[in-house]
């Protein structure tokens, strides 16, 4: 079937509960775009124009349904004082958290338009929006406060403090929330739809109780902020989030992007209220062959395409940086073929 709608039009229909020509196909093509464009990763995440161009190159080759502006979740923590190394061929690595010695250390209140790599994102958004924003949505991945918190303190310490000094952590998270909101404001005015990523709130990392009492509260607050703008908010959490499924309804996210979860369960528990995104296994995507990927992805799409509130064909997590192009193409092809709705 040949596409009738542009990715922009397709996404527009999905969020008003109408069936587009087919499911949007949005594998989480983030830093993988640098591989597609043939540039070093460091150039990708330190230069907005490069990041945008790489994303546009990937879009032109893959013809998927969104541009993703993202490299890694340390972005806001870095602007608040955590230090990162920039390897040439890898993503930034946390060198020294801002609150290494505890909550009494100083954090920086960043300028959302100027501090560290925040302007890289904004530049990338502006470039992509100018260039292809009329036909394809631009998504900017924003780390949720909990995940940023885990980059401001050493993670194990952060978790201990949430139990020992919840009030102190609350002050930190409130500050992060304000900074994140301000950054979202800039992202919006540059032309992108913020999508919230909270990978470190995964069931693989924290207990459902900490999720419910800490991480989720701040997801909710951020989502409320975006809802004021009348945006449909995407929430992405990697790893195994099976125990958290019930809570996702409470976040009031409009679309939920899932990773290692039994999607039939999600279909049952969430799909009447939330649009589902997911969840092709990225290890399979990296290591398997195009025929196999095409087949298994097709089966996944057929299972999920009739989710009540709608469905976006996607990978469970980011497409691995070195994934062969043919594999991604096979995945997208399956999504487009099997995700067709119109007669």
């Amino acid at each position: 079937m040949k596409d009738i709608l542009t990715p922009r039009e397709r996404f527009g229909m999905l969020v008003i509960d109408e069936k587009p020509d087919r499911c949007p196909v949005i594998p989480l093509i983030t830093s993988h775009a640098a591989t597609v464009a043939g540039i070093k990763l460091k150039r990708y995440y330190t230069n907005g124009e490069r990041m945008a161009k790489a994303q546009i190159t990937a879009f032109e080759i893959y013809q998927h349904d969104a541009i993703s502006i993202f490299s890694e979740v340390g972005l806001i923590a870095e602007a608040m004082g955590s230090e990162f190394n920039y390897p040439d061929d890898d993503l930034p690595v946390l060198k020294k958290p801002a609150l290494l010695n505890g909550l009494h250390d100083k954090i920086i209140i960043p300028n959302p338009r100027k501090s560290k790599r925040l302007p890289v994102y904004l530049e990338a958004i502006k470039y992509a929006y100018r260039s292809v924003g009329d036909i394809v949505p631009i998504l900017a991945y924003i780390p949720a406060p909990f995940t940023t918190g885990m980059h401001l303190l050493p993670p194990e310490k952060f978790l201990i403090e949430t139990l020992k000094r919840p009030d102190g952590i609350k002050i930190i998270l409130d500050t992060i929330l304000d900074v994140t909101k301000e950054f979202c404001f800039e992202v919006i005015n540059a032309g992108a739809l913020p999508i919230i990523v909270d990978p470190l709130a995964s069931g693989s990392v924290i207990s459902p109780a900490i999720y419910k009492d800490v991480a989720m509260i701040y997801e909710q607050k951020l989502i409320d902020y975006l809802h004021r703008f009348d945006f449909d908010v995407i929430l992405h959490i990697c790893g195994d989030t099976s125990p958290l499924l019930e809570y996702f309804l409470q976040t009031s996210a409009d679309l939920i992007s899932l990773d290692r979860v039994n999607m039939l369960k999600a279909l049952d528990k969430l799909s009447h209220k939330i649009r589902l995104i997911g969840n092709f296994d990225t290890t399979t995507l990296l290591l398997s062959n195009p025929e196999e990927i095409h087949k298994t992805a097709g089966m996944m799409v057929e299972q999920l395409k009739f989710a009540r509130k709608g469905y976006i064909v996607s990978t469970g997590c980011e497409v691995p940086i070195k994934t062969p192009r043919e594999n991604v193409m096979a995945f997208i092809k399956a999504g487009k073929e099997k995700g067709w709705y119109w007669v």
């Binding site: 922009r8 924003g133 009329d134 005015n189 032309g191 739809l193 703008f229 009348d230």
Partner: peptide, 18 residues
């Protein structure tokens, strides 16, 4: 639920009104 419409131009810009 869906009838709320008071959003700033930026919202519509993000949805493609360049």
């Amino acid at each position: 639920e869906w009838g709320i419409y008071l959003s700033p131009p930026a919202t519509f810009m993000v949805y493609g009104m360049r």
